[in-house]
């Protein structure tokens, strides 16, 4: 498998965040949750992430044996998928056995550079939209529809809560 420098991927994602949400200056003025048009922008960036996550997981899971349980699927995401996407595996996985999984990553890739820049505090959430989309897409690709939330209040650590939806 050919490889490129992680910086190249970081720069690409950074420019996508700028493109879809507007540049730093614009973003500082509007708090993301307030504004309807901003919410649409966020949804679009997340949707692109989901699309990429879905296709990326399909590629990664080519040739892996069929997952027999839900937990096997989640473990695949926490390990193989996470390493391939974020360069390390999840540090801790918890579940209530009722369809909620809590994944914690002590040094989440997408927050590493941002959390070093003091100016960027308050904008950490902007940088998590796209990866949240990727993660959601990965779960969906394994037939698990879900909502994914990310808590990055102690960046670069990030805690993801995945709530599976009832299967229709």
């Amino acid at each position: 498998m050919t490889e490129v420098a992680e910086e190249s991927f970081d720069f690409l994602v950074m420019i996508m965040v700028d493109y879809f949400l507007g540049n730093d200056e614009k973003r500082k003025k509007v708090s993301l949750k307030d504004d309807l048009s901003t919410r649409r922008k966020v949804e679009r960036l997340e949707a692109i992430g989901r699309d990429i996550g879905r296709r990326w997981l399909e590629k990664l899971s080519e040739g892996t044996p069929h997952f027999s349980t839900e937990l096997d699927k989640v473990k695949f995401i926490c390990k193989e998928f996470w390493i391939a996407t974020f360069q390390k595996q999840i540090d801790n996985l918890k579940t209530n056995n009722k369809g909620t999984y809590v994944l914690s990553d002590k040094r989440f890739r997408s927050l590493l550079h941002v959390s070093e820049t003091p100016d960027a505090i308050g904008q950490l959430e902007d940088y998590i939209i796209f990866p949240l989309g990727i993660i959601k897409g990965a779960f969906e690709s394994l037939g698990m529809n879900c909502e994914v939330y990310g808590d990055c209040s102690s960046a670069p650590s990030c805690i993801f809560t995945v709530n599976l939806k009832e299967q229709e």
């Binding site: 498998m1 050919t2 490889e3 991927f9 990326w56 360069q87």
Partner: peptide
């Protein structure tokens, strides 16, 4: 520097160009 799969980069860039 650390490496990322070229596939992930190609996939991401492709989706971006499409948008």
């Amino acid at each position: 520097s650390e490496k990322v799969s070229a596939d992930l980069v190609a996939l991401t860039y492709g989706s971006f160009v499409r948008e």
